[in-house]
Design a protein around this nucleic acid. Structure first.
Lengths: 194, 194
DNA sequence: TCAAATTTTAAACATACATTCAAAAATGAA
DNA sequence: TTCATTTTTGAATGTATGTTTAAAATTTGA
């Protein structure tokens, strides 16, 4: 990789980060090319030198965030913890993303309408991969006798739904701190899985 | 009320219904004045004879749906059922709305961005009223010894979140029928409240 | 330093809607 | 039937973006 290519790559990453920081607050549709560019002190036209169009840029932001989350979950899975301990860490991580990444991590709502065409299947595939991480731990827990939920698939949807909703009401500067939030949620979740 | 006024009212209701039927599928931002008008075989300009602007029309759709839901919940509360029975009926009704009304009932996601300005406080107030119905039944259940959730307010957020997520994945034409869905969800919910 | 390659810019262009408006059409009371 | 009132229309207007483009500016390597 020569200098030109390295510069190109670095610039793409900068744009991605700027875009992500705006999407977190305004969501995918609410983010404009203009605003992304101004964050980087450039003009919107330049963005098209690095990305095909807005849809492509948004897709890469989504992909970046979710892929990172998946990777983080894999790290947890590799620690050799018990299913219960593993699930605690995954719940904690998911809530972390929901609170910190906000709209970027708002997996279905907007993206489903936003990523039409070629990108949609890829978005859905990655999302499925993410969800299945939870399924696999639940299955492992059932096999090891730690969990026995009535209906594993529905239980997972129930649990992820409750967590995904957090970003709609939780404010990090409120009275409830993140650790308390995670612990209370995990407590409820265990009532469903056991 | 004279003939003119009655006609005006009827037409407003027709428009509201047409708009709601489109919002259910496309969401508030995705619904265009053009599409609403064409549903009623009129031109979009006419809509402005009945409503001040799109925001006003969307607000009234939201208000109509949520007010109806609140009214339905009040009917349940007046049946003199036990807290557990009452909660079952409320869960069942909420899921019914989530599945059938879809985006119209998609309480926070879009509306929060969509209803800026004067309308936002009204939207949030109605939503609060809706949520408090659940709080009151939980409190009643605690008082009567049927429930003892660890943290009633968070439990309610957890529960409503899990239910609100349903509209993101549930398809009425899938293998899981609505009754089964309601029963499984109620089962999980009771594990949290007891 | 210089020429070629690269990056950036500003303006033009395109598109999708919401909204307005004056004129036309439809309606209803006399 | 007539005319004032109500309702609808279709075109015009406004606005907020995304996208393209040709030219200018910058950077790179010899």
């Amino acid at each position: 990789m020569n200098l030109t290519e390295r510069k190109m790559k670095r610039k793409r990453e900068q744009i991605l980060q700027a875009a992500i920081s705006i999407i977190k607050r305004r969501g995918y549709s609410g983010t404009t090319m203009e605003e992304i560019a101004s964050e980087l002190l450039m003009t919107k036209g330049s963005l098209y030198y690095y990305f095909k169009n807005k849809s492509d840029l948004m897709y890469q932001c989504h992909n970046f965030t979710l892929s990172q989350a998946i990777e983080d979950h894999h790290d947890i899975l590799n620690r050799g913890l018990s299913p219960t301990e593993t699930f605690y860490e995954m719940v904690s991580l998911h809530i972390e993303y929901a609170v910190e990444q906000k709209e970027t991590f708002n997996l279905i709502m907007e993206p489903k309408r936003f990523f039409a065409g070629e990108k949609l299947p890829l978005v859905l595939k990655l999302r499925k991969e993410y969800e299945e991480l939870f399924d696999s731990v639940i299955a492992d827990g059932v096999q090891k006798g730690e969990f026995s939920p009535k209906d594993p698939k529905i239980a997972r949807l129930f649990i992820l739904g409750s967590m995904n909703w957090i970003q709609q009401w939780y404010r990090p500067d409120g009275t409830l701190n993140k650790q308390e939030l995670k612990d209370i949620y995990f407590d409820y979740i265990m009532k469903i899985l056991r």
